[in-house]
Design a protein around this nucleic acid. Structure first.
Lengths: 128, 128
DNA sequence: CAATCATATACCCTTGACAGTATATACTAA
DNA sequence: TTAGTATATACTGTCAAGGGTATATGATTG
């Protein structure tokens, strides 16, 4: 993929946050929805657009879709996250805060043996 | 400036090329026009948009406007150029080719003591 | 002053990105 | 099969980005 396409993805705050989250590990759509607090249709479309340019990858698991960065991740993307993680900008702060929320989510999921914890997030998922 | 704004600038091939050229030194509008082969109005508008977000800086010199990267350059921008300079992508190739053309232009200017060499480029500039 | 040059801006138009609503699809469970 | 759940897509409307043409501005020269 071309650098220009990658920059277009990074140029939207939501896509930047999504990519940053996926850079730390796969997530299903409903978790991304909750972490970023966006409606389902918006999340689905953002993900579709990034999948279309080959930046991310989707895998079905039952009724859930698990999204992850395409492997290997684009080096230019890695380069940018390396910088953003150490940056003091408000945007970088938010990426770090997203990252913390993601960690909390993962421990909750593990604790509850529940792939989609309705109790913690507003999402209406139910245990499989 | 926010990272998002920077990425928006990078997300257009022409702006990317402009920034890459300016990263190597200041240039006047007519030289940029010729190096990228774009009409004057387009170049002027692209430059205005990047000036509006504080990425670049303009300085008048007679009838010419000399554009340069704002000093100090945004570290995120530097990071990206560092990567792009070593990348093998078609876009990176073009940045390198732009860079060579710029070098040729500069030696010509020096040789001819002419700040805007009409002979080499299609531009209608005249010697001051 | 008038003429010319380099550059910027105003205006109009087209295109594409994005949001929201509704509906479709793919899967699971009863 | 029917119902329900997670996700995707179709459709529509709005808005901003970008291109082109014409014109304005600011500086220089004669």
């Amino acid at each position: 993929m071309e650098a220009t396409e990658l920059y277009k993805c990074l140029a939207d705050p939501y896509r930047l946050r999504i990519l940053s989250l996926l850079d730390q590990g796969p997530l299903c759509v409903c978790h991304l929805q909750d972490l970023l607090a966006v409606p389902q249709v918006k999340m689905s479309k953002q993900l579709a657009s990034m999948k279309a340019v080959g930046l991310i990858h989707a895998e079905r698991s039952g009724t859930w879709m698990i999204y992850s960065l395409k492997n290997p991740a684009h080096p230019l993307l890695q380069h940018n996250f390396e910088y953003l993680r150490t940056s003091a900008s408000p945007e970088a702060e938010r990426l770090r805060s997203d990252s913390q929320q993601r960690a909390q989510l993962l421990t909750q999921i593990e604790k509850e043996q529940n792939p989609c914890p309705a109790e913690i997030y507003a999402c209406t998922c139910e245990a499989k």
